[in-house]
Simulated scan of single mutants.
Amino acid sequence: MPSPEGSRELLVVDGYNVIFKSARYLARMDETVAGDPFEQARDLLVADVAAYAKGRYEPVIVFDAAGNVSPERPDLSKAGVRMVFSRTGESADAVIERLVTEQRLLPRAVTVVTSDRAIRATVGGVPVTRISSDVLVADVNQLAAEYERANAERQTQHMRLEDRIDPAAREKLWRMLRG
């Protein structure tokens, strides 16, 4: 179903559900950090979701703030990704359900990323697509691998001296070396 007025489809990501599904994010958690051991994992997830959503989605990541060290967090935006933290006493599930319901009323297409069965059951139906956290993590891992491969190829190309020399000058040098 197309979104109203040319707006992109809304992508709602269950933040901690995805973080706990991937070694990529868990490796960024630091239990020794006094304030917030999730900060680096969240930042990486935001960067990954921004790359995943680029041009297709309007991304929102919902985090459950109830159990965080600092539960009073404002909604933030980084790299074009809106981050929403549930209020004290409110679950991320409730925030996700509210966001999806609001979009259904427009109507606007929504994709929800979570492996939480309760949320998947609650938000299902038209115009909502459900993707498991594992699928998003696999897609993000593939994007990251493609980026690293392309970056390595660019680095190799830029490091070779013969690629930096004007083709005519390079041909003269080859003739001098052979002659």
Rank of each mutant, 00 (worst) to 15 (best):
A41P: 15
A94M: 14
V69M: 09
G55M: 01
T114C: 03
S91L: 09
A51K: 10
V46A: 08
L45Y: 04
I131D: 12
D43H: 10
P71C: 05
A145Y: 09
V100C: 15
G35E: 10
T122W: 00
R87A: 13
S70E: 05
Q40E: 11
A144S: 12
S70D: 13
S77I: 03
V46W: 05
D139F: 03
Y147Q: 09
D139A: 11
V112T: 11
D75I: 15
R130Q: 14
V110A: 02
R120W: 00
A53Y: 06
A47W: 01
L106Y: 07
A118G: 00
A79I: 09
Q142D: 15
A94H: 12
A109E: 07
P127L: 07
Y57A: 08
E97A: 09
V46S: 09
V140S: 08
A47I: 07
G67T: 06
V126W: 00
V126S: 10
V69Q: 14
D116N: 08
G125Q: 00
Q103Y: 02
A79V: 14
Q142I: 12
K78S: 02
T88S: 06
D36K: 02
I61D: 09
D48H: 08
E148I: 06
R73W: 09
Y57F: 09
A53T: 11
P37I: 07
N141W: 00
G67R: 15
L136G: 00
V135E: 05
Y57T: 04
R104L: 14
T114N: 06
E39L: 08
A47P: 00
A121M: 04
V126K: 03
L45A: 11
R56S: 12
V126P: 05
T101K: 09
E102N: 14
P127T: 08
R117I: 10
V69F: 14
V112K: 01
G89Y: 08
D75A: 14
A145I: 00
S132A: 12
E58K: 11
V100Q: 06
R98K: 13
D43Q: 13
A145R: 05
T111Y: 01
Y57W: 06
E102Q: 12
R98Y: 07
L99W: 11
A53S: 15
F38R: 13
L136W: 05
P71S: 05
P37S: 10
E58D: 12
V126Y: 02
E148C: 02
K54I: 01
R73Q: 14
T114F: 03
R56K: 08
I96G: 10
V126Q: 05
V46K: 04
R56V: 15
F63T: 15
Y57C: 01
V100K: 11
